[in-house]
Nucleic acid binder design. Structure first.
Lengths: 340, 340
DNA sequence: CTGAAAGCGCTAACAT
DNA sequence: ATGTTAGCGCTTTCAG
């Protein structure tokens, strides 16, 4: 490994001067700088980031903790977060907790304050949140994708108004004339996605529609689960003309179940989800959904975390992400007079 | 931040002893050790990994460079790689190059040898490979998912026999009686997926079947592109009874196009892909595909990279991953006598 | 404008 | 069994 002082020797200066050249051309004589640059190039020198991090007390690395990157939602977030981090001069360390709070704690213990200058935590359960709170003193932690803006956590966070997302979905279905609506509730990654379903149900109730328990299923977060649950729903309640799912994976599974059942989407049954993952528009029929603008949330989160690193220790404050927006595609349509 | 010497002071020993306690209980008196452990707990001490890395010259971090994590194939690889790395005591730094060799080079320049002890590189183009070769001297680099076992690169690599995967797909379709077969070739991430298509075509040719150019489309890697291309294919050649795609994303898009065209899969047209991404079995009809055993390849890659770090500088050697395997699901079936 | 020197927190000889 | 010492490669005053 080539070190600073080897470069210095070759350029006939000291390490300090080389270090200066590396990020402060002001104080160095152009001619000297050129000599140094030449030596750097010739030797193929690359700074040792560990030494730099040790000296400066900052590593220019952000950590992102998520439960399972195999869920298609996360890669989209990661992509955007990584771009944002990179363009701000930071690396992004992706930490999979495998849905295991123990793994999450171990990660946090190891990286917090040394490998990572700050940590972004998504979708955790409460036990883990408490743990975060205790380690927050040594390193900034930002919760992101917080689903309950009305109940801010004890940490800084970026909240998304998922209740509103549910409400938008409900309004859309109501407007299309649907009244018999089935509901699929996913299990997020630390509790059911109840903010979404509550928002949805509130609108229905305001319109005088009661949804009985038989039309509601709580399931794991996956296309498979959505498929199976939709099968069950349609068996229980063949008269349903629409299905609302708390996320797109479930909705996609539901749509496929309907196709298997020879029910046309959306002519026989409409389907709507939440999130707007990439798959949503790639599937046929393309999924109507409520977009929560993942990339924007990711960027906001990274920005805010970096700011937290620079000026830490304020009150735990919550920032609301841009509001969810309805994206109408091909999976929803008007209720037909006589269905199936 | 709590340091070793603060712990030492509280436990009335020196930093060296604390350091010993931290990973070598042999040499230290149990009573002392207990005192140290107590101090560590009370102070909430956590070792500074940068200091450790600087001292030891190793950071216990692996980097994984990939083109775009939004492609569903990558998260599955990442998940497995991260688990393997973690269980071997390493972190995994995921680096998105955004399909841009420049970004890849910048990453490599920064992290190689300091933040990462070794680098896993997937699916790169040749220009980047050359760059890797030059930086390989300072840090072990392992190419993974190499598609051409018959042409080993100048770096250590894990190769997957994709030609064989194509051949298996061809054999399967032939066995089902298909002769009019369309082909969708994706663009990997640095060149077309030709190993796959070559393996496929070789088997067809050996069976006396010529595939003419009109039945072959070269496209970008996505469900959308597969959908559009399949539409075009069926317009050109309505008599096709099967479609082979060089990856599952394309195949899934193709299947959806067929459904849109009111062609039943697999009764009218069979569809087969390569890879066996999670989506393949979640989609309906479930996709027949040739599994390349992503998780196994990821684990193998991590193992081999770690070994390379421990004993570097051998000849660039190639390791062949476990062979691809046909996974028959619902999207392929026998050719019907009279098709559409 | 450049050099000398100290030290970030940790580890690993080598002493005791 | 524990302490002493000397850096790892870099940044950063402070002198010159």
């Amino acid at each position: 490994m080539i070190t600073l002082s080897e470069v210095a020797k070759r350029a006939q200066v000291t390490a300090a001067t080389v270090s200066n050249v590396l990020r402060n051309r002001e104080k160095v004589h152009p001619e000297t700088a050129e000599r140094v640059l030449k030596a750097i190039a010739e030797l193929g020198y690359r700074p040792n980031l560990n030494a730099r991090a040790l000296k400066k007390g900052r590593s220019s690395t952000l950590a992102l903790m998520l439960s399972n990157i195999a869920n298609p939602f996360y890669p989209e977030f990661v992509l955007a977060a990584e771009r944002a981090a990179r363009s701000a001069g930071h690396f992004l360390l992706v930490c999979n907790t495998d849905d295991d709070a123990k793994v999450g704690q171990a990660y946090l213990n190891q990286i917090a304050g040394t490998f990572a200058d700050g940590v972004l935590v998504m979708n955790t359960d409460i036990a883990f949140n408490e743990f975060c709170t205790s380690t927050m003193q040594s390193v900034p932690i930002l919760l992101t994708m917080w689903e309950r803006p009305e109940a801010p956590p004890a940490l800084p966070c970026i909240a998304v108004d998922f209740a509103r997302a549910g409400a938008l979905a409900a309004a859309h279905l109501l407007e299309l004339g649907h009244r018999d609506i089935g509901m699929l509730i996913g299990d997020g990654c630390g509790g059911l996605q109840n903010a979404r379903s509550d928002g949805f149900l509130a609108v229905l109730r305001a319109a005088g529609i009661e949804t009985d328990a038989a039309a509601v299923l709580q399931i794991r977060d996956s296309i498979d689960a959505g498929y199976a649950a939709c099968m069950q729903l349609m068996a229980n309640r063949p008269q349903l003309t629409a299905i609302f799912a708390t996320n797109d994976l479930l909705a996609i599974g539901a749509a496929q179940a309907l196709i298997t059942l020879r029910r046309t989407v959306p002519d026989d049954v409409s389907v709507i989800g939440i999130t707007d993952i990439q798959l949503a528009h790639q599937v046929h029929p393309a999924l109507t959904t409520v977009a929560i603008q993942t990339a924007a949330v990711a960027e906001l989160s990274v920005d805010r975390l970096i700011r937290l690193i620079q000026t830490p220790d304020q009150q735990p404050s919550m920032v609301l992400a841009p509001p969810p927006e309805l994206v109408v595609r091909a999976s929803t349509g008007p209720r037909r007079a006589a269905s199936s």
